[in-house]
């Protein structure tokens, strides 16, 4: 076989190789057999280049159960003090929470997510921020498939001309409409938990739980 492009010999670190290898297996066909990781990030702002991730929170979901002993919550060291991030610093300082470097955080994060399907609200933001972290370590982008609860939620609204189909729904609006309490808004783990409950409720509404096929979820728009 002729190879047109010579692949560079991978000089990626072991943790990446291990992560990458997981994607050689095909994901299970049914929704109920898959592991989902629902995540949220807190960042210093909305600029993909300049801003940094302060905290990643995530919960894992398998067959309708969220295991609290498997909650992921990590705080990342900041190079310089940024007044925007006082709240998070407050958490770290007051609760004496351990912080990690970007690299340490990514090692743990990749190990946690494995080849699970990632779920987030307005997922593009969180995924891009994490990809930027990877880029700074000269690593490729995340390989996981991603679902956005915003898109999924929109599909549960009835198909009517009275509703603006292109409307964007914030996590607060989704939570209000699905009757989810929003006590932990704006902590990464808390938002991830709210998103996870929303995700479960949306799956029920779309009738895609258990026996639904995973690939159908990616077709929702």
């Amino acid at each position: 076989m002729i190879r047109f492009f010579k692949r560079k010999p991978s000089n990626h670190p072991d943790f990446w190789k291990k992560y990458e290898a997981l994607f050689q297996v095909k994901p299970p066909e049914y929704v109920g057999d898959n592991r989902f990781v629902i995540l949220d990030t807190e960042a210093t702002g909305f600029d993909f280049k300049k801003d940094r991730v302060l905290c990643i929170g995530a919960v894992s979901l398998q067959s309708n159960v969220i295991d609290i002993s498997e909650v992921f919550e990590i705080y990342i060291e900041q190079e310089k003090f940024n007044p925007e991030t006082v709240k998070i610093h407050g958490i770290i300082k007051n609760d004496k929470v351990k912080t990690f470097t970007e690299e340490e955080a990514l090692v743990q994060f990749l190990d946690y997510i494995g080849n699970s399907v990632l779920v987030a609200h307005h997922a593009n933001f969180d995924i891009t921020m994490i990809n930027q972290m990877l880029k700074r370590l000269r690593l490729p982008k995340l390989k996981n498939r991603v679902l956005d609860t915003m898109t999924l939620y929109r599909a549960t609204r009835i198909n009517s001309n009275l509703i603006d189909r292109d409307k964007n729904y914030s996590l607060d609006q989704v939570a209000e409409n699905l009757n989810i309490s929003v006590k932990d808004r704006h902590t990464a783990a808390g938002d991830a938990m709210i998103t996870a409950i929303a995700f479960l409720k949306i799956l029920t509404k779309l009738n895609k739980k258990e026996k639904g096929k995973l690939k159908d979820l990616f077709r929702v728009r």
Partner: peptide
């Protein structure tokens, strides 16, 4: 002392 934080477990508690 430094510890890892579990916001959700705290809420459940």
């Amino acid at each position: 002392m430094q510890k890892t934080k579990n916001t959700i477990a705290e809420r459940i508690a």
